[in-house]
């Protein structure tokens, strides 16, 4: 590669990188400056925290944040348990109808929660769980995807370790708990990161099954807040948007490599 061509590449790459950040940078600019500087790009424009305070005061973001944390934690930890149990059965047991059952599980990859949300809405209402956090979690807990990736990982655990654990006196659950799960931690981390960001970003289902601030998650709260007819200031909406995404952006900044590896090894959002 000649020097010139390389320089063109570098400049092009950096331009693309900058362009990709631009929408976010623009929102940040609006959020941290007084309203009169919204579209005046002056390096010396005074900084302000006012927009964040304003947004924080206008909607119960702390409650939304707490709800989101509960929802995401509940969902991901339940997924770990339920999917690990099923994945263990598929990875290490022979039983009648095994392939049929595995096929039934994989069907979930075809029937996305979005296409059956009307029926699931009725089910949640029937169970009396409307407007609760478990209602948001329930349809996602048995994740075909989780079962699939954990099964792949469990299959790589040497069978001799099962034998050794059996002789050491372990029962089925103890083998899972003390041998398979510790040896599959990287997969749990990867799947966990993917699941957390999926659920942090989930909107349509939480919108449908929640209708009060007590159970709304950040995304729904943010949408309700920014769609209010009263005409909220742009700067305030930008600030609210940044507040909602800040935990994710921070987590991504810290765990960038893990995030990228997780998404690429597990392959689905």
């Amino acid at each position: 590669m000649t020097g010139n061509l390389k320089n063109v590449n570098v400049i092009g790459a950096w331009l693309l990188g900058f362009l990709w950040l631009l929408p976010l940078l623009y929102a940040i600019w609006a959020a941290i400056h007084p309203i009169e500087y919204q579209v005046r790009f002056d390096i010396f424009a005074p900084l302000t925290f006012f927009n964040f305070k304003n947004a924080w005061a206008q909607a119960p973001f702390a409650q939304y944040m707490l709800n989101t944390l509960i929802y995401v934690t509940l969902t991901t930890s339940s997924q770990f348990v339920v999917c690990a149990l099923a994945a263990f059965a598929f990875a290490r047991f022979e039983f009648p109808l095994k392939n049929v059952l595995f096929g039934l599980v994989l069907i979930q990859l075809l029937i996305h929660p979005e296409v059956v949300l009307i029926e699931n809405y009725k089910t949640i209402r029937f169970l009396g769980l409307m407007d609760t956090i478990p209602a948001i979690s329930l349809p996602y807990i048995a994740s075909a995807f989780g079962i699939f990736v954990l099964r792949q990982t469990f299959k790589t655990v040497p069978k001799a370790l099962d034998d050794a654990a059996l002789i050491d006196g372990a029962n089925t659950l103890q083998i899972l708990r003390h041998v398979y799960i510790p040896l599959s931690l990287p997969t749990f981390v990867a799947y966990g990161l993917v699941s957390i960001s999926y659920h942090w970003n989930n909107y349509l289902w939480p919108l449908i099954v929640t209708n009060s601030d007590e159970s709304r998650v950040l995304n729904v709260g943010l949408a309700v807040f920014s769609m209010e007819e009263a005409g909220v200031e742009w700067a305030t909406i930008s600030a609210a948007t940044l507040m909602v995404t800040a935990p994710l952006i921070t987590a991504f900044l810290i765990f960038q490599r893990q995030f990228i590896e997780s998404f690429s090894t597990t392959g689905i959002k």
């Binding site: 040497p158 001799a160 370790l161 050794a164 654990a165 002789i167 050491d168 003390h178 510790p182």
Partner: peptide
Amino acid sequence: PKERGIAMVFQSYALY
């Protein structure tokens, strides 16, 4: 296996 009063050493050692 644990009720049989045996212990086993494996070819691959099978250490955790």
